[in-house]
Design a binder for these strands. Structure first.
Lengths: 215, 215
DNA sequence: GTCTATACCGTGATAGAC
DNA sequence: GTCTATCACGGTATAGAC
C-alpha cells in the first residue's frame, strides 16, 4: 500500500503542493511558494515532476488509490454483513463517508489537505470534469449500483441526482471553509467532521428514499 | 432595482470578469484577459475599479442585492400563503431555490456566471469565510428561522448542519461542472437546473425532517 | 469624466550551466 | 541534484487623447 518515495525531498514537495493547492487552487500557488514551504530549491520540483500541471496531477493521484481502497473495502464489508437484500441505504452511505473521517483522524494533516483539494477540483467548472472521472468514477458507480439495489425501482436519473446532492454536501464539508462557523456563530465548526458525518448519513439516506422511492 | 451603469464599458468589464472569475477563479484570470474579453484597454479596469481585488469584489456585489431581494420576496410570499403554522419545509426550501432557477432562465448568461462565481467563493477555503457572510448571512438566517418554525423542537446545531448540506448540494449545482454528465453517461446534465431543483426540494426537505425531528 | 497607449518593475515558469 | 539566468507575463501607474 505504501509505495516508497522516489526521494525524501520529492515527498516534501508533494506535501507542500498538496497543502497550498488545496488552500489557493492551481493558479493561486507558485512553484516558489511550494519550494519554500517544502524547504527545497525552486528547480527541484521541476526536476522531479516536470511542469507545474504534472505536479498538480501527481498530488491529486498520490492518495487516490488509497482512498478508493478504503472505500471499496468499507462497501465490501457492509455488503458481507448484510443479509440477502443487501445493505441499507444508510450503511452504503456510511461506507462512502466514514473512510474519509478516518483518514482525517489519523492525525496526518496531509489527508485533510488532500480531501480539501479533491473538494476544490470537484467543484471547479474547469477541473471537475477534466480530472475527477478518471480516478473516481469506477468506484462511485459501484456505490450507485449498491444504492440501486437498496432502492428497488429507482430511476437512474433520480439516483444520479441524489448522488449529486450527496457529493455536493460532502464537497463543501471537505473544503472546510469555516463558513458554517460564522453563520452559526460558533455553534457548528467546519473542522468537526464527526458532527458533519453523523448528520449527513441520516440526512442523505432520507433524501435518497424520498426521491427514489416515491413511485 | 436597476442602477444605471457608471459607464457602458465598465459594465462590459464586470460582465467579462464575472464570466472569467467564475470559470477560473480569482488567480486564474488576468486583467488582460478580462480587458480583451470586454473589448477594452487593459488600464480601464484599473481606472474604474482600482486593484484587481476590488474588481473581484465589485463583481461579487453587483447582483447580490437582486438575488437577496428575489429570495426574500419568495419567502415572504410563501409565508403569506401559509396558514397559522407557517409554511412547510418544502415551501421554504422552494423559496430558497427557485429564484436561482428563474435567474438563470431569463436568458441572461450573466446570472449563470454570477451563480457559478458564488459557488466558487462559497466552496473556497480562502474566500468562503471572507466574503460570503457579509452579503448573505442575514438572509440565510431568515430562512433558517423559518425552518426552525417548520421543524418544532429542532436543535440549532442540527438546523445549521442541515443547511450546510443544502448549501453544499446547491453550490455544486451552481458550479455546473459537467461531472454528473460524465458520471451518468449523459442521463443527467449539469445544465438542467430544473431537473436538479425538482429533486433537491423533496430530497432536502426529507433530510431536514429526518435529522431535526428525530427527537 | 472616460478611455487608450505605453511604460515600469516585480515575479513567474522553465531551461541550461554547474 | 542544485544554482542561476532567461524571458514572458503579471498588476499597476502615468500621460495624454477624446
Amino acid at each position: 500500500m505504501s509505495e516508497k518515495p522516489a526521494s525524501p525531498k520529492s515527498e516534501k514537495i508533494l506535501d507542500a503542493a498538496e497543502k497550498l493547492f488545496a488552500l489557493h487552487g492551481y493558479d493561486g500557488v507558485t512553484l516558489r511558494q511550494i519550494a519554500t514551504t517544502a524547504g527545497v530549491d525552486v528547480a527541484l520540483a521541476n526536476y522531479h515532476f516536470g511542469r507545474k500541471l504534472a505536479l498538480f496531477s501527481a498530488v491529486f493521484e498520490r492518495r487516490a488509490a488509497h482512498l478508493n481502497e478504503a472505500r471499496r473495502s468499507a462497501l465490501r464489508a457492509c455488503q458481507a454483513n448484510a443479509g440477502e437484500g443487501g445493505p441499507s441505504v444508510e450503511q452504503i452511505i456510511e461506507a462512502f463517508l466514514r473512510p474519509l473521517e478516518l483518514a482525517q483522524e489519523t492525525g496526518d494533516a496531509g489527508w485533510q489537505h488532500y480531501l480539501a483539494l479533491v473538494a476544490y477540483i470537484n467543484n471547479s467548472p474547469y477541473w471537475g470534469q477534466r480530472m475527477m472521472s478518471r480516478l473516481f468514477d469506477e468506484l462511485v458507480l459501484e456505490f450507485i449500483d449498491a444504492l440501486r439495489q437498496a432502492l428497488p425501482g429507482a430511476a437512474d436519473r433520480d439516483l444520479f441526482w441524489c448522488y449529486h446532492n450527496l457529493s455536493g454536501a460532502l464537497t463543501l464539508t471537505l473544503a472546510q471553509t469555516g463558513r458554517i462557523d460564522t453563520l452559526s456563530q460558533g455553534k457548528c465548526l467546519s473542522s468537526d467532521l464527526q458532527a458533519a458525518y453523523d448528520r449527513m448519513i441520516p440526512f442523505m439516506a432520507a433524501g435518497f428514499r424520498e426521491v427514489c422511492m416515491k413511485s
